[in-house]
């Protein structure tokens, strides 16, 4: 008991064991929910943007409950930039691929020449692939917006 009180005194203000533990338990479920929103985006409310924001919010929550360094350990700056650019590349890549295969820009039905599926099925599956790219990019931008705003750009410490 004494030890716990001493340990509590050493911590900076606003630092609580309850918040840390509940955030550690919550974050995997928030990320699973974000993935669910992205994957089910084309036939239920939600989609790439909302799912990406939920995924980004999970890392922001980690940075709020612990500190900026901890969130950087789970999601490094380089990986964040890589994921964001990969998202843009998925979106533009699929759109251009459709145009190269003889369809229009973002005309998913043209992808049936690569993998034979019905045109309707490709229209449903193509929007899922594009939303995956949107989700990755939005997650990356939200996380890097928070990092840069909270730390003043130097990634040393913040909030």
């Amino acid at each position: 008991m004494k030890l716990l009180q001493e340990r509590a005194k050493g911590r900076p203000a606003g630092d609580s064991l309850i918040i840390r533990t509940s955030v550690r338990l919550l974050v995997p479920f928030i990320q699973l929910y974000g993935l669910y929103v992205i994957v089910h985006g084309h036939y239920s409310p939600g989609g790439g943007f909302q799912g990406g924001v939920v995924l980004g919010a999970s890392f922001i929550l980690l940075a709020l409950a612990y500190d900026l360094k901890t969130s950087l350990r789970y999601m490094s700056e380089g990986a964040n930039v890589l994921l964001g650019n990969a998202g843009v590349l998925i979106f533009i890549g699929i759109a251009v691929l459709c145009a190269l295969l003889g369809g229009l820009f973002l005309d998913y039905a043209a992808l049936a020449r690569l993998i034979p599926m019905a045109a309707e099925e490709w229209r449903s599956f193509g929007i899922f692939l594009v939303e995956l790219g949107v989700g990755l990019t939005v997650m990356s931008s939200m996380v890097s917006l928070f990092w840069d705003l909270a730390s003043g750009g130097d990634m040393e410490e913040g909030l």
């Binding site: 924001v53 919010a57 922001i60 939200m142 917006l145 928070f146 705003l149 913040g158």
Partner: peptide, 10 residues
Amino acid sequence: GISTVLFIAA
């Protein structure tokens, strides 16, 4: 969610 956190960070 996000905009409140960004405001508070600012």
